[in-house]
Deep mutational scan, measured.
Amino acid sequence: DEWTVEDKVLFEQAFSFHGKSFHRIQQMLPDKTIASLVKYYYSWKKTR
C-alpha cells in the first residue's frame, strides 16, 4: 500500500480533526482501507 506525500498530509489533517475515528478519516482518504489507515497511524505515531 503506497502512501503519497498528499496522502500523508491528508491523513495528518484528518487525524487533527477526527482523532482516531478511522471511519471518518477514511472519508477523506477513500482509497485507503481502515486496516491500512490503522497500520499507517501506528508507524506515523512512532515518528512523533
Rank of each mutant, 00 (worst) to 15 (best):
S21L: 06
Y42V: 14
D7S: 06
F17P: 08
Q27N: 12
D7P: 09
S21H: 12
G19D: 08
K8D: 01
K8Q: 09
R48K: 09
M28G: 02
H23D: 08
V38K: 15
I25Q: 01
S36F: 05
T33V: 02
L37E: 06
K20A: 10
Y41W: 07
G19V: 02
V5M: 06
H18V: 00
V5Q: 12
E6F: 08
F15A: 05
W3C: 02
H18L: 03
Q27T: 09
S43F: 07
F17M: 07
I34Y: 08
K45W: 06
E12D: 13
K32A: 01
L10A: 10
P30A: 02
H23C: 05
Y42C: 13
K46L: 05
T33C: 02
T47S: 09
L10S: 03
S21G: 00
I34N: 11
V5G: 05
R48L: 15
L29I: 11
F17G: 02
Q26V: 04
Q27I: 00
K8S: 02
S21C: 14
K46P: 02
K20R: 07
S36A: 08
F11N: 04
F17V: 13
W44P: 03
T4G: 01
D31V: 08
T33D: 10
W44R: 08
F11T: 05
E2K: 15
S16T: 09
A35S: 13
A35W: 09
A35K: 13
W3Q: 08
K8G: 05
I34V: 03
V5C: 08
Q27V: 15
L29W: 00
S36T: 10
A35D: 10
K39P: 01
A14H: 12
K20E: 10
V9L: 11
K20S: 10
L37W: 02
F15V: 10
H23N: 13
M28L: 07
K20M: 14
S36Q: 14
L37A: 05
E6P: 06
S43I: 11
K45L: 06
V5Y: 15
F22V: 02
F17Q: 05
I34F: 14
K45G: 04
L37Y: 07
Y42A: 12
E6A: 10
D1E: 12
A35H: 12
F11W: 00
R48G: 14
Q26N: 09
F17N: 12
V9M: 07
Y42M: 15
Q27M: 15
A35R: 14
V38P: 00
F15R: 05
I34G: 03
Y40C: 05
H23R: 09
Q27F: 04
T4Y: 11
E6W: 02
S16M: 12
Q26P: 00
L29M: 13
F11E: 03
I25F: 01
K32H: 09
E6M: 04
I25A: 07
V9W: 12
K39W: 05
Q13L: 04
I34P: 00
W44S: 07
D31P: 06
K32G: 01
Q13R: 09
Q27Y: 03
L29K: 05
W44L: 10
M28I: 11
D31W: 08
Y41A: 02
Y42G: 14
S36M: 11
E12I: 11
I34H: 03
K39Y: 12
T4H: 03
L10V: 14
K32M: 02
F11D: 01
S36R: 08
Q27P: 02
F11M: 04
G19S: 08
V38T: 11
K20V: 03
H18A: 02
S16R: 14
D1A: 07
H18R: 00
S16H: 15
V38F: 05
S43W: 10
D7L: 02
Y40L: 00
P30M: 01
V5F: 12
V38A: 12
V9E: 11
I34E: 09
Y41N: 09
F17A: 11
S21V: 10
W44T: 10
K45F: 08
E6I: 07
H18I: 15
S16C: 06
V38C: 05
S43A: 13
F17E: 15
V38G: 13
Q13E: 11
V9N: 14
V5A: 13
A35P: 10
A35M: 12
S16W: 07
Y42N: 14
T4R: 06
K45I: 09
D7A: 02
L37I: 10
E2W: 10
